Amino acid sequence: MRVSVSRSGGVTGIPRRGAVEFVMRGERSPSDNEWAGLYRAARSQTDQLQRDSGNRLARDAFQWTVQLGRQRVDLPDSTLTGPLRQLAERVLAEGG
């Protein structure tokens, strides 16, 4: 599975990007298991967030784009919460 994240906006306007790939099925490493668990928790949150994403982007706030396999989610920083935020931040930190 491939997860990619892009964060843009903010005061400086400097975009950040990252991506990770991990195994969802079959023989997995402990790291793959950890990523897969975080992915599943984040994925369960995306449908609700997309329905609620009528929120406006605040000035100088970050805008996030999270690609979970074939599903793309575009969200303002204020609505990126819970497991999806944890996944996005970890991808930026470790998948740079």
Rank of each mutant, 00 (worst) to 15 (best):
F22A: 05
Y39H: 11
S31C: 07
G96R: 14
L84K: 06
G26C: 01
R16M: 12
A61L: 02
Q63D: 07
V73L: 13
T12Y: 12
R25S: 07
T12C: 04
M1A: 14
L84V: 12
G95Q: 01
S4R: 15
R17S: 08
L49D: 03
L84P: 09
L57K: 13
E21S: 14
D47I: 10
V73I: 15
L87F: 08
R85E: 13
A88T: 07
R90C: 08
P76A: 07
G37R: 10
R25Q: 08
V66L: 04
A41E: 15
R17W: 09
W35K: 01
A58F: 10
R28P: 00
D74I: 05
P83M: 04
P30A: 07
R17E: 14
A58K: 14
Q71P: 02
T65H: 07
R56L: 14
Q50T: 09
R25M: 05
N55I: 11
D47V: 12
G82A: 12
Q50S: 09
E94Y: 02
G13S: 10
D60T: 06
P83S: 14
W35T: 01
T79H: 09
R56Q: 10
T65M: 08
R7H: 03
M1Q: 10
L80G: 07
S8L: 10
L57C: 06
R25I: 05
W64M: 07
D52T: 11
R59Y: 11
E34P: 00
G95T: 03
G10Q: 08
E89Q: 15
E94M: 03
T46A: 15
R25G: 00
R28Q: 02
Q86G: 13
L80R: 07
N33D: 14
L68V: 07
A61F: 03
G37P: 02
Q50N: 07
T12V: 05
I14T: 14
V20H: 00
L80A: 08
S4I: 08
V5T: 01
S44D: 14
A93D: 14
Q48H: 10
S8E: 14
A58Q: 13
L38Y: 02
I14P: 01
E34S: 12
R16V: 09
G69Q: 11
V11Y: 13
V3A: 00
T46G: 08
A88W: 03
S44V: 09
R7P: 02
A19C: 02
V91H: 02
T79I: 14
R43Y: 15
A36E: 04
Q48Y: 10
P76G: 03
S31D: 13
T46H: 08
V3P: 00
R90Y: 08
L84Q: 08
R25C: 01
